[in-house]
């Protein structure tokens, strides 16, 4: 919806390169995420999407290139410093605080919103208790936001898989991101969970949070993204609206291989997405 008013870049990735030993995982990757948009980042398995996330959020050091958020360079920052700038990511492999209740998971996520220092806490200042009450209310709101309100007291590790994935997003949202990086948030969710997650994505957008979304479920990516960037073998091969991407011959080739190119081009664009998904998961 606000697609036309989005112009300003929030995140810029410029000539990013990441090596793992002799392996070139990302090769001169350049793209940007504009403030307020949902940008889909797609590509076959092993294309380097997760690696790009790791480089942006400070988990690995890129070999070269620039990454900046709102004009400030992220070079050399540790993950928590990146989070302090409002850039928060989730993990491809499910990652919650397993031994804590869903509610406490979100409380932990609220770390960045709290201002009381260790000394205030040790001396038990009234402001600490006030902030704590406020945070408990906020934690309830965040849990309700993703629809996990009724599961507040369940241990993170005891939640069904799909709900753990929701909890991850809740924890990330609790950290009050202005840019949220989601790494395959619906992988492992069943179709109805995926459908409701797409609604949550809509709500997240309404909060004014910019989203960079990595996802194999093409229906989902094409449904929620304003723009899509395609990564293959470490390089960006296409950048455009979902409609353009679905027709792009390079993308079709990357996903389906040369042999299927003709066949695929004849089919409707929506079907391409479905095949891409099948292949990615198989």
């Amino acid at each position: 919806m606000p697609a036309k008013t989005i112009q300003q870049e929030a995140l810029t990735v410029d000539s990013l390169e990441v090596h793992f030993g002799g392996l070139l995982a990302i090769n001169s990757m350049t793209f940007d995420v504009r403030a307020g948009e949902v940008l889909g980042l797609i590509g076959p398995n092993g294309a380097g999407k997760t690696t790009a996330f790791n480089a942006i959020t400070g988990y690995i050091r890129p070999s070269s290139g620039h990454i900046a958020y709102r004009g400030a360079s992220l070079a050399g920052l540790s993950p928590n410093e990146v989070a302090d700038l409002g850039v928060v990511r989730t993990f491809q492999k499910t990652s919650v605080f397993g031994g804590q209740s869903a509610f406490d998971n979100v409380l932990m996520g609220l770390h960045r919103r709290q201002t009381r220092k260790a000394l205030h806490i040790i001396f038990g200042l009234p402001s600490v208790a006030a902030e704590e009450r406020e945070m408990r209310d906020t934690a309830r709101e965040v849990l309700d936001f993703v629809g996990l309100g009724p599961r507040a007291d369940e241990l993170g590790s005891a939640l069904p898989y799909g709900e753990q994935r929701l909890l991850e997003v809740a924890v990330a949202l609790a950290a009050r991101p202005s840019l949220l990086l989601l790494d395959e948030p619906v992988s492992g969710m069943n179709p109805s969970e995926t459908a409701s997650f797409m609604q949550i994505m809509g709500e997240i957008r309404k909060l004014g949070i910019t989203v960079l979304l990595v996802e194999h479920d093409m229906k989902m990516v094409m449904g929620v993204s304003d723009r899509v960037v395609v990564l293959n073998n470490g390089s960006i091969i296409a950048d455009g609206s979902p409609g353009e991407i679905q027709k792009n011959p390079d993308v079709i080739r990357a996903y389906l291989g040369e042999r299927y190119k003709k066949k695929a081009q004849m089919r409707s664009t929506a079907r391409v997405g479905a095949k891409g998904k099948k292949r990615a998961q198989g």
Binding site: T57, A83, S95, F97, G98, R112, A175
Partner: peptide, 15 residues
């Protein structure tokens, strides 16, 4: 506790 339970996740939310 967050660090003890899951350090990468803890740092991702700013700890």
């Amino acid at each position: 506790i967050a660090l003890r339970e899951n350090e990468p996740l803890a740092t991702s939310i700013g700890v």
